[in-house]
């Protein structure tokens, strides 16, 4: 079995299984912790508050943008760039089509370049801030660094394989992706899903009070 067959076959299915089961297990586990009902008389709808919070916390609000501009620019650059790369890079679209049969129009090369630049610059700058800002340094733990570096290596190997001419480079990228997928459910990378829960719970609490947080 070649390296590519290994990473596209057994390893891929193993990683996918760990990812899907792990993420579901963790999310359901969080919900199963349960929460006592709020008996106070609501001023407004909690559900409305939850939806508003989910939307509102995606954008700067409350007049704090100037203070958090660095995080805003790098965070948006990285996350938008990564999202676009993940779902619209031509090799990814082809890969998804191969798996599921569904395909869509991939990005042109210039679009790929812009997304990749934004994602790389954002990730590197966010990590540098983590290393230099006293507040972030005090908060950070090993998980923060491991997650950052895993994502970086995944993006890096993806770019190195961009010529799509060498199976070994493609396999290397896949191997890194699989490492990331296995690490994901055990780590803070879970924020990709839990952000919805956190915002919704806060939004519901505040929403009942008639406040959009």
């Amino acid at each position: 079995m070649s390296f590519l067959e290994l990473t596209q076959g057994p390893l891929w299915y193993l990683a996918s299984a760990v990812f899907v089961i792990g993420v579901l297990w963790r999310l359901i586990g969080i919900l199963r912790l349960g929460r006592s009902t709020d008996r106070s008389v609501a001023r407004a709808s909690g559900l409305g508050g939850a939806l508003k919070a989910i939307a509102l916390h995606s954008v700067p609000h409350g007049g704090n943008l100037k203070r958090t501009l660095y995080h805003f620019l790098t965070g948006y650059g990285f996350h938008l760039g990564l999202f676009v790369l993940l779902f619209f890079a031509a090799p990814h679209v082809a890969f998804i089509k191969g798996l599921t049969g569904f395909g869509w129009t991939p990005l042109p090369r210039w679009g790929f370049l812009i997304a990749a630049e934004a994602a790389f610059a954002g990730l590197i700058l966010m990590w540098l801030r983590r290393m230099t800002d006293p507040v972030m340094r005090r908060l950070s733990d090993a998980d923060d660094h491991i997650a950052t570096w895993l994502v970086f290596v995944v993006m890096l190997t993806g770019c190195l394989a961009l010529q799509e001419a060498h199976d070994s480079l493609r396999a290397l990228h896949l191997l890194c992706v699989e490492a990331l997928m296995i690490y994901f459910p055990f780590s803070r990378l879970m924020h990709a899903f839990t952000f919805l829960f956190a915002r919704a719970y806060t939004g519901a609490t505040y929403g009942r009070r008639g406040v959009t947080p």
Binding site: S2, L4, F152, L156, T157, A165, L172
Partner: peptide, 29 residues
Amino acid sequence: ALLLAVFVTVALALAWAGPAAAQTVRPPA
């Protein structure tokens, strides 16, 4: 870690590319 990432890329690529190079190389997309 950055350097390591680069070297790992190189090493792994080399390890697998050597013997089977003829079958695993295609014209660029």
